[in-house]
Design a protein around this nucleic acid. Structure first.
Lengths: 204, 204, 204, 204
DNA sequence: GATGAATGAGGTTTCATTCAT
DNA sequence: AATGAATGAAACCTCATTCAT
């Protein structure tokens, strides 16, 4: 946790530091990221950095907290409200949508999460067991769908969850790549959902 | 490219160096990996390292070349031979299978590829534009399937390719995770293919 | 010298600062001691510290002044009063006793003096020539003893003073070590005095 | 323990480094001593230092090992040889003599030992329990003397050992102070021994 | 060709002190 | 007077790379 001094700062300066940190961690791994670069970019003295944070890790963890908190906000807003109104595939659509929306509105946070996900050792140190949330989330959603009788009973839920996770990741990459427009996103998501619902096979 | 001296080495020593390098890069990012660790592990003097390679990057690029070359070999062996004998979904099955097989037989190469894929800057420096090969490969396969009339004409091929790429990645993770058995892999792949073919929706 | 602001403080706060400083300097060398720790412990702002003292050294010197002053008080109280009533060995006993008593009643001041005594450079900077007070004191006492005819004329007074100084230091350590009881102290001091008076040799 | 690289160095360079280290640690506490100063003084690059030693502590411990080893050599040479030839007071004389001789011939090692002795925390970290050797040594010697019937049976051996330790320390300081001559040392030691044997009291 | 010592730039972190409120 | 944020020099240590044998 950052020190009190950090939270006592003027909003504006705090923002500058966070922005600088996100910039640095979005483009460099935790180890490659330099405290000096963050301090310089934020326009503060190197020494000041250590008045705000215990060390580099302290800042990094705080950033991840922000990321998780923000992401949760996104998903919850959309999903909690609609959980009982819609059927499984509509909920899935919402889930995809909020994932994409989050990524688009916080594009610099994404690489940080991805980098962490790919550094096992760091991941363990920071989050311990803390299961892969994304796959877990989809599995719960699928169980709900199964209970509703919306799913083909032949499918393995855990595998399907894994699959959806992978698809969401790729889809995000796909959409982020050239900053495509919002309207198009809808089409893409609907296409993707069509694939998920009906598969690739030609209907007779 | 490694220097001539490297290729003049006894096969056995060359092998030892490559193995040591793979070990190091499989567990550390490019920047985090230490030349010293590689030299120690390979049982050569630190100075010798620089007689074989220009620098750390030189070795890393060479490793990636090996990785790509090896992966291509896998896919080609299975696919080129069977391209005309089987229908689209059988080919897709082969593609998944060879992807998985490669990952299982070269488990230490995988993290290297993943790490690289997640470091934009490094990726650019090493491969420049060099499109995402995996998605490209699936797109070609899908085009072949479309030509065969095996696919639902409503689907967007590029998107489907993205989707399959993500799925393959996740599937690989899924299988590698607890070292599942070969026979099970088949079942999982068939399950996955079932999803891909028929989607999640309950059949009437 | 502390600034006027320091002496204008409420007795209670001044006390708190001194106590905090003693704690810090008793457990850390001058260089190792941290101004921040003192300020925190005393419950004052770091900035306030510099309103009271020129710098770390300023406080340290002041502490040493207090120490010397306090020690002098101890010795004087006992000694000045008794100087003419008792013979040499009784005075020596008093001197040892007051040394021990001071150490026991101000246990945290002792390490500060010891640390200083062992850092030549610092010692010089703070006290310049300022002879070793303890040895000097014993030498005067011995001269008084010689004048009284209580001492073996063969002994070298300066050397004996050095010897007594070392003994007092060790004795203090010895007694402080496990917080021994007061009554025991008397016995120990009498034992020690016996040694001083009669030496180790077996009497015939 | 220093790394192998250190022991592979040319004698001359190794010597230079040790000398530089002793100089630094003799005039600064462990924490105050600077690796940079040692490297500069020894004429090596800062990086080289870390090729030879794990860290600052590694070098410091090695220095202490040298100190102890050297001191042991001194004492043993003189004492082991003479243990059975001489009576107690002669042995004590030898002990004092070797202590002094060691201090005179290795004047820069002494402050290092003293500083360590006065930093409890550091002492613990380096030597753990490892009793105060000097006091222990004198106690054994005194027990030998008691067995021989050379000592006044009224004296407390542990206290006497403490006393002798303190005296040796002070005596060493006394002699080192202004670089007194060898011949004088003998006189001083004999004076000191006289005090120890016969005490201060005037003989009738 | 092989070795391993030598180098120094650059990273993180600490902390006494100053400054602005 | 009091506060506590701001500063930057300086410390330790790492490591890719060069150099001399």
């Amino acid at each position: 946790m950052p020190k009190d001094t950090f939270f006592n700062l003027l909003e504006e300066k705090r923002e500058r530091i966070i922005e600088a940190a996100i910039d640095e961690f979005a483009t460099h791994s935790f180890y490659q990221a330099r405290v000096t670069a963050i301090a310089d970019q934020a326009g503060i003295a190197k020494g000041s950095f250590y008045q705000y944070f215990e060390d580099k890790m302290d800042l990094f963890k705080y950033l991840l907290d922000l990321l998780v908190e923000k992401k949760m906000t996104y998903i919850n807003q959309d999903m909690i409200v609609n959980r009982n109104k819609y059927d499984f595939f509509q909920l899935l659509r919402e889930a995809f949508l909020s994932g994409i929306r989050f990524a688009k509105e916080n594009p610099r946070l994404l690489p940080i999460g991805i980098m962490l996900a790919n550094d096992q050792e760091l991941y363990q140190e920071i989050w311990g067991e803390h299961q892969d949330t994304s796959a877990e989330f989809f599995q719960q959603l699928l169980e709900y769908g199964k209970a509703q009788g919306a799913l083909d009973p032949a499918i393995d839920l855990k595998l399907a969850a894994t699959m959806l996770t992978g698809m969401l990741f790729s889809l995000t990459d796909f959409i982020m790549e050239d900053g495509k427009l919002d309207l198009d996103d809808m089409k893409i998501i609907d296409q993707m959902l069509y694939l998920v619902e009906n598969g690739l096979k030609k209907k007779n």
